[in-house]
Design a protein around this nucleic acid. Sequence first.
DNA 1: TCCATTATGCTCAGGATAAGTATAATACGA
DNA 2: TCGTATTATACTTATCCTGAGCATAATGGA
Lengths: 316, 316
Amino acid sequence: MAKAPRKAETSIDAIAADLVAVLVAVTEGEPKIMTIANATALPSGPFQFGHRSLQTGLRAWVEAQTGHPLGYVEQLYTFADHGRTGDARAPHRISISYLGLTREDQVREGSEGHWSGWYEYFPWEDHRAGTPALLAKIVAPKLRAWAKSAESTSVQKARWQRAAITFGLDDRTWNEELVLQRYELLYEASLIPEAVRAKGTGDAVVPGRAMISDHRRILATGIARLRAKIKYRPVVFELMPAEFTLLQLQRSVEALAGRTVHKQNFRRLIEQQELVEETGAMAAETVGRPAKLFRFRHGIVAERAVAGTKLPLSRS
Amino acid sequence: MAKAPRKAETSIDAIAADLVAVLVAVTEGEPKIMTIANATALPSGPFQFGHRSLQTGLRAWVEAQTGHPLGYVEQLYTFADHGRTGDARAPHRISISYLGLTREDQVREGSEGHWSGWYEYFPWEDHRAGTPALLAKIVAPKLRAWAKSAESTSVQKARWQRAAITFGLDDRTWNEELVLQRYELLYEASLIPEAVRAKGTGDAVVPGRAMISDHRRILATGIARLRAKIKYRPVVFELMPAEFTLLQLQRSVEALAGRTVHKQNFRRLIEQQELVEETGAMAAETVGRPAKLFRFRHGIVAERAVAGTKLPLSRS
DNA sequence: TCCATTATGCTCAGGATAAGTATAATACGA
DNA sequence: TCGTATTATACTTATCCTGAGCATAATGGA
């Protein structure tokens, strides 16, 4: 710091920063993300002088592009361009990405904004109806071929081990949090269009809709973060309406996690944590026995700093 | 994105980005951070054209300033200047911060680098010898005064509740992960020099060494991240020598967490996770019964994608 | 030899978790 | 009107994890 040139804003170290939003909603048990440009891009725009902060800049861009106001927001990650601009002498461009949570709402007429199901971009991530067929039929064989294509046997082994762990192959258990690792593995194996596009060696890829530049990587980062976070912070409620049944809540969690949960135990967990309270009303227009309606206890968020230790920390 | 000006690198939305490192080591049971500028700043420097990526830029700056090579690195957070530059029309400057883990080593002769104990900056965070006296004697009374200074009773209550929760007052339990929340609360209450400096209303503050601009906030972010992470990822080993006893490992964890753990249970946890293996040798030059030496099983990192669920996710 | 000190093995109670069984309400069609 | 499908909700059970403490083993030094 002391030795660094400090007045360099307009000279050699000037760069440009983009703000990118992974804006999530869950509607009728399906996770959606806000997209623009015909569902090929996330809402984004440059961080400009007029923006008072990174978040206000992000909010401005999202509202301008989609007409949708931003609620809960947290920062995800900052990427620098992966040298894909070609010219190494070109000034840097970095992307500062955010995760936002809302409810699906009216997208402004005439705006570019569009809610897209996130599993369109990651079909291998939805395990709610069991392991998707395309994993065994398409992904696994291609990954095996990629592993085999390495020269040395040790690299072949290492590649396959990595693939098996991240995708839960060879009887390993599926870990829903490894969204980014899976995407990056597929990218490395040139099995997704974005990678092939960069290399120019286009050919057989895995199913799933592509996005511009590294937006799909950013989306993977957002999904991974959200899947991890719902386990120790009550963020699901940002995605729920004011009143909901426990089954609706469960379906939302399952939509995000991409897997099912045990119904009775889910209720017990939610209730014993005192996260919700009954509204007194019952759900209408349903099949089966009507369910009680609940609302989120906002007070509890401030109360709890949340537990969740893993080390044997002594109490006294 | 579609509507955003794309070629603006040199025009209105050009900004400057600093790379900042929280470089941690643990030596003889004390957590240290690498500092420069007489222990008032973290290693940092601008992201420049010549840097191939954010991480390479960071590595270059840290090595130049401290002579210490960077090992394990992960990104922390990206901050924009908090409007402290004064001029709202001035171009933006953002800080991209990283957490790095190493072992204390020889700092290059003549370099600015210096290892400082991190509890010098956060004396209220060290609970290894019980709750520090300054919490009850200094911090709590000042926070209570700050709470009382609010106009409305409801704000007074809310302020004190927040203080009590983050600092574990009123018989609440101490949560060692809330490092950043505690710093930000003290900042808001004008109890630390950095806040007073910005406001210009200098007066009674809480003990603890200050840093330039928001480096102490960045340090708090790094400590919080590390305290959270050691509970579910085997990152402590980045800070350990090749061979170590289980007690040394425990002392390192305690140094980071700022609290003690139950010895027997700690061993059980480490051993049953198969994170370490015996080297066969014993520790020399100690008091008491000699301890076995262990080494970290590097292989296990790749094997495990780590468990740690909190929702009743069903297996099938 | 006794004591201080650290290492290590083991037990036990309580709580959390996964999984399953059983029963309660509702709508709808036969 | 009565079964049946469907969802809600209450309990039970076995297992595992965790915190806490007791007991014993090695070592060096007084």
